[in-house]
Design a protein around this nucleic acid. Structure first.
Lengths: 368, 368
DNA sequence: CTGAAAGCGCTTACAG
DNA sequence: CTGAAAGCGCTTACAG
């Protein structure tokens, strides 16, 4: 390919604004004006400049140089943990990014995807390398060095699903309350033996059953808070949280949910219900259950979290906590835009959630 | 927000590399080396530099300045028509971008989303403003000024689902052949009255029934080729293409498919089958049919194109043309990366498709 | 309506 | 192991 691109270039390299200016016989300022301030020069001269630019193969002012000079890039960065492709894998993330991209478009900004350092220390660099005017930080562990790096950059930033306290606008939901409602639903159906499947609790996730220590050390706000919410519903119902098995998945993907179910559903006194901190994990649990010959909800009730579009279409339709992913993205994006404009947006926006009861939950078969 | 960010800044602005250098008492080159070439200075000095940087709130070398100086940004741009959020709306696009993002990650590059000028002339600027090292151009109309702008930039570029001939690597499928297979399937089932629902044929889509002129003027490669493929199957079967109603949707969304079905299914001699150029449109057709009291496939057979994940889960499961969206993205991304490295990647990669027959097609009820 | 000058913040040979 | 110098490509007051 190099060969081809070289071929199409003027010997060696592209024309610059200065060269166009020289060819036309005007100053660089005038060429710059031809592109950026058409009213600053006669339309005849402007035509001449543009014509020469065309002839020389000058594609217009270099965006990087322009950004450096102007002090802004017209790009907003979205930082999230995990692989870059996660933005296109988790349906909840897809919706969230759809919202952000709408806000970006409204403001005429471009969108840069940046990944954090969940798995690889070296990824911290990504934040430093991102030429953006501001960041939306999406559901990162609070101790992630990338988050710190963003704050260090001192650019407008909006945190999403993160703890408060960095003096930065925040968009989120009441994870704890929503989780409590999910657990209360199971309790009210009569379930007493309940298992929990969670996505990552912190960087370097464990992948297996985890005890109280690990749980209370959770740095992923969403998982930590959701576990607390579950506990707040189960403890008062006489289901001691210490005896509730909690499986931490290494990643928020269906396969991990299956693996978790494999462990949780193995013992003789298997749970009659499982609380999953995401729909993706819940789908995995359901799949595993069916492969084990357990009917959902007949033998096992499953509750998810997120209400991704697939939840309603699943078989059985998934009982889950609805949260407005797209609106979250839209709000976060607009807050960032407003920050970029130098306005002072609201500190914190907590969006509403609601439990959506569908076909994946029912009273337990035997009240053993 | 401004207020807050200002507060956290050193009075007025961030520290620069030069200021760190001055404070430490070394040259800017040494500070630069502390970040970029740790082996070029004693670890003691490096520590000192980093410590001062921390104290001064210097977040490391400015990415824009670094890009300008180095001549590369570490970012690849993905250009597509439509709104920015389209990347997170069409499941086929989501899969495609997942593939690209994997390739980007492999190479340690970041991903910038850039939209073309399908609906708004002013969007051409987006390409000029994008500080990227190369572009993947995804399914744009061949006459789109943005595509031209990309070529003008003279940076490594990979075209996807576009016509050949710009001297640039290309990734695509055999749209015509795949569409032919879809139409042949309906013919072999015995259908004689067939309608077609297509997404945009060109910029400024029509939104309504379109004749031969508009069809042959299609600048969206995929739609033009797919219509040709349909024609190639129907004509020889004694179903004259001129009499096949073709509805052009204004956008590739479910709602437009419904609107199209509303028109196509209205007449007395309504079609017994509909060919849609995307699954999204096919879903709309199915939905409209059901609302009209027509059973799929009993009263109406529907064939899609894309085989998005939802196609298999739909009710009834959708007969459609499978194409490897994610692989397309991965291939395109890797070709671009290889171009960025100065290698000479293969010119053209045509990926395989196959017709997947599911429950949305059946023989027509009456062979009227 | 046009130009000369300064400078955005950095990196890279090169010389020592 | 460290520094002086040049320059990446542009835009913006400012002066005329």
């Amino acid at each position: 390919m190099a060969a081809n691109f070289e071929q199409r270039r003027e010997p060696g390299r592209r024309a610059t604004l200065k060269e166009v200016a020289a060819e036309v016989g005007v100053s660089p300022a005038t060429v710059s004006n031809a592109y950026n301030r058409p009213d600053q020069l006669s339309s005849g001269l402007r035509e001449r400049v543009l014509e020469v630019a065309r002839r020389l193969g000058y594609p217009g002012p270099d965006p990087t140089a322009r950004s450096l000079r102007r002090g802004r890039s017209g790009v907003i960065g979205v930082l999230y943990a995990d692989r870059l492709s996660y933005a296109f894998e988790d349906p909840a993330a897809v919706l969230f990014l759809r919202g952000i991209s709408e806000a970006a478009e409204e403001a005429g900004l471009q969108l840069l995807l940046v990944t954090g350092s969940l798995r690889d220390e070296s990824d911290v660099e990504a934040v430093g390398k991102a030429a953006v005017d501001g960041f939306v930080v999406y559901s990162m562990p609070e101790d992630d060095p990338s988050v710190h790096a963003v704050i260090e950059r001192r650019v407008p930033t909006v945190l999403v699903d993160q703890p408060e306290g960095m003096g930065t606008p925040l968009v989120g939901i009441d994870d704890r309350g929503a989780a409590r409602a999910a657990a209360e639903h199971l309790v009210s159906l009569g379930h007493r033996r309940i298992g929990v499947v969670s996505f990552e609790l912190a960087r370097e996730p464990v992948g297996g059953l985890v005890g109280a220590d690990r749980q209370s050390a959770a740095t992923f706000l969403a998982s930590g808070q959701r576990l607390r919410g579950y506990a707040e519903a189960l403890d008062p119902a006489g289901i001691p949280w210490e005896r509730v098995p909690v499986y931490e998945c290494a990643e928020n993907v269906l396969e991990e949910g299956k693996a978790a179910a494999g462990v949780l559903l193995a013992p003789d006194d298997r749970p009659t219900a499982i609380l999953a901190t995401s729909d993706l994990l819940a789908f995995g649990v359901t799949e595993a259950a069916e492969e084990m010959g357990l009917a959902v909800p007949g033998d096992l009730s499953v509750v998810g979290f997120d209400d991704v579009p697939e939840a309603a279409r699943a078989n059985p339709p998934l009982t889950t906590v609805h949260q407005p992913h797209m609106e979250k993205g839209l709000k976060a994006g607009r807050l960032l835009v407003s920050g970029l404009r130098g306005e002072d947006p609201p500190r914190t926006e907590i969006l509403p959630t609601r439990l959506v009861v569908r076909g994946s939950t029912a009273p337990p078969k035997t009240d053993a």
